[in-house]
Design a protein around this nucleic acid. Structure first.
Lengths: 171, 171
DNA sequence: GACGCTTGGTTAAAGTTTGAAACAAACCTA
DNA sequence: TAGGTTTGTTTCAAACTTTAACCAAGCGTC
């Protein structure tokens, strides 16, 4: 099979995407580390909990929502628990499961730091976009998220029979 | 200052963005780990070198292009050097600098694995987008990259005077 | 009701990233 | 040109992530 290389335009789009996503994530991490003492992922975990009924979720569900592996979550929750922002609770009706639950202190940290986080996201991202672009962004990424999520479910569906190229590596 | 919270639409866009970027990066990492034995970042480093004159760049320039910290790059290059894909060379006219240079083997690995990588990027990203969306993607992200890059340069320009909220933490 | 499979979660070890500090060469500038 | 600053890079420890392996509890079924 001959490779379908990226067009000029696609390459530009891809590079811009890589650069911007990395820079944005770095900037957000820095801000949150500064103001909340935790990286973005950990903040997201708290945020996810804060929106769940009773401020708690089973580990698996939380991992699912945060788009991370269970083991990564275990580590993160352990740290947040040490910090007193989360408490573990075991599930009554399924002895295997355990809940992660936001503590009052966790909620307080979230409330204290949310404005700064939102301001960062807004100033770095949304303030830079026109209303139409916000629309486009949502359209594009919600579509992508959906198909990527579907892909996620089947672990390596088919084989991977590619080889030999004749153009650039695309980064 | 009262917080400028995200609108419904902005929240949806932001969540979709977070989800899709994480899932995409994970998928690409998995594919490259499988087929090239290295994560995306390391592949990018090789790719960047392959496009530089003589296949080499000073560490700082390489870090700049790859959007990573110098210390992260040092670690990565050390590993890639162990793998024989990169060689370090010191700079003649500035004794502080050192170059990272793609070896023949590094180039070979790149050529061998590029088709698979491109195919992944294409099938997960570009195949999912209309030509207009590719256009929009490029427009949006090259703009973002530019402003984020500018921000990068000045290390914490102003102070950060925010507090108190009354809506959600936005993830 | 016991065997085998799946699910929920953790663990341990190896690998990676971060952030600050250390170093050394290059560059002022008085 | 000595002294101080900047620049290019590495180092180190602590924090984080990954991967594979593990354990226990549920589930299905014969």
């Amino acid at each position: 099979m001959t490779t379908r290389w990226l067009s000029e335009k696609e390459q530009r789009a891809w590079r811009a995407y890589i650069a911007a996503t990395h820079l944005l994530e770095d900037a957000i991490d820095r801000q949150l580390q500064q103001d909340a003492g935790m990286p973005h992922l950990y903040y997201s975990i708290l945020a996810n909990l804060s929106e769940a009924p009773e401020g708690r979720l089973r580990m698996t569900d939380l991992a699912e929502r945060a788009k991370i592996t269970r083991s990564r979550l275990t580590y993160a929750v352990t740290r947040l628990e040490k910090d007193g922002l989360i408490r573990r609770e075991d599930c009554q009706w399924d002895k295997r499961s355990s809940f992660a639950m936001l503590t009052d202190e966790g909620m307080a940290v979230l409330e204290r730091t949310a404005p700064g986080h939102v301001e960062t996201v807004r100033s770095l991202l949304f303030d830079q976009l026109t209303p139409e672009q916000v629309e486009q962004l949502e359209e594009i990424f919600s579509g992508l998220a959906q198909t990527l999520e579907r892909d996620e479910e089947r672990p390596t569906p088919e084989d991977v029979p590619w080889r030999r190229r004749s153009s650039g590596p695309c980064s």
